[in-house]
């Protein structure tokens, strides 16, 4: 495994901050009624996308989780996140061309698209991995999902098929212990999702999802396994959803308010702060540099907002021409 140098660590830190700032921008725009559709905040989850997607090849395939609508994954892979903001404003410069208002699609970075039915990415990622294996150029696929997504039958069919065919795919589960209003503990027969991997004869690992380096290390190991033709892996990242399922929805567990103490407890191990403290201690970061990065990310978010608002809407006369490829 490639050892991370100081520049890599700084880039990871910056990408965590960028993800957080762009998430905050999305939330603000949602609150101001500017977003044309819904928004699922990724606060609490940032380390997973950033940790997993750092160091991938540009042509590796990614299937993002819906939290942040692709932000952390795309940012770590090198995509300009202003495309996310433009998409949310329904503009032609968005990463789905403004057609849906939230779908992520950046094929030149290996993001071929997402669905809006949770868990459907399992079977698609099998197809991406199958194509990669046929092509034989060493590409891998990472699909991200939640603890809810894993409960769909798709997971089991995909896991078996990928394991039998030794396909180069890594499934990263972001277990934030909630699926919309329903707590994981009341809908799962197992305590740890990673244990499901054994049924399909693949490695399953539990990782601290608030620790960007832990995520990175675990995913890199699985990526290497996939690249070398040994087949799929399942990685469960334990994390937490800071906000309600989507902006404007009640924040309940079943039908009672979620525990404020529990949220506060998880926030003490905030993935951005945690990494910041570590890098400060190791003298990779300084207080001054933290401030500089924060200001630069604020400026980038501000520019992205302007970019979004100044971008044109799609041309509706194109819609009927896009139903079938020529």
């Amino acid at each position: 495994m490639k050892k991370l140098g100081k520049q890599d660590l700084l880039l990871m830190y910056r990408n965590l901050v960028r993800t957080r700032k762009f998430d905050e921008l999305n939330i603000r725009m949602a609150t101001e009624g500017k977003l044309l559709t819904f928004y699922h905040s990724c606060q609490g989850h940032e380390a997973i996308g950033v940790g997993a997607c750092t160091g991938l090849r540009k042509d590796d395939y990614l299937y993002p989780h819906h939290r942040g609508h692709g932000l952390s994954y795309a940012i770590a892979k090198g995509v300009n996140p202003r495309e996310c903001i433009a998409e949310h404003l329904g503009r032609a410069t968005g990463w789905g061309g403004g057609i849906t208002g939230f779908h992520t699609c950046v094929p030149e970075f290996g993001i071929l698209g997402v669905g809006a039915t949770i868990g459907s990415g399992f079977v698609l990622s099998v197809g991406f991995a199958l194509a990669a294996k046929k092509r034989g150029e060493g590409q891998i696929t990472i699909m991200f999902t939640g603890d809810g997504g894993i409960q769909r039958g798709q997971f089991h069919e995909a896991a078996n098929m990928a394991s039998v065919w030794k396909l180069p795919v890594v499934w990263v589960v972001e277990n934030n212990q909630m699926a919309w209003f329903t707590p994981y503990r009341d809908t799962s027969a197992v305590e740890d999702i990673a244990t499901l991997a054994a049924s399909y004869n693949m490695p399953g690992e539990i990782v601290d999802g608030m620790d960007v380096l832990a995520v990175h290390t675990a995913v890199q190991k699985a990526v290497e396994r996939a690249r070398s033709g040994e087949g799929p892996s399942l990685i469960e990242c334990k994390t937490y959803r800071y906000r309600s399922h989507s902006e404007g929805r009640p924040d309940v567990s079943h039908y009672l308010p979620r525990s404020k103490e529990e949220i506060a407890k998880w926030k003490e191990r905030d993935p951005v702060k945690l990494f910041e403290e570590k890098l400060l201690k190791e003298k990779v970061l300084t207080k001054a540099l933290i401030q500089k990065i924060s200001q630069e990310c604020d400026a980038e978010a501000e520019e992205a907002e302007t970019f979004g608002f100044e971008s044109p809407f799609p041309d509706p006369s194109n819609l009927s021409k896009m139903v079938y490829a020529p």
Binding site: G119, G153, F181, T182, S188, H254, Y255
Partner: peptide
């Protein structure tokens, strides 16, 4: 899924009246 709180409200309040055995929050498994 989520019928006890009910995102579109049509089953909201039923769990308080009839209990979780008759208003079942199911896994994400259509």
């Amino acid at each position: 899924e989520n019928v006890q709180e009910s995102p579109f409200l049509v089953t909201k309040g039923l769990v308080q009246q009839f209990g979780p055995d008759r208003v079942m929050d199911a896994p994400l498994s259509e």
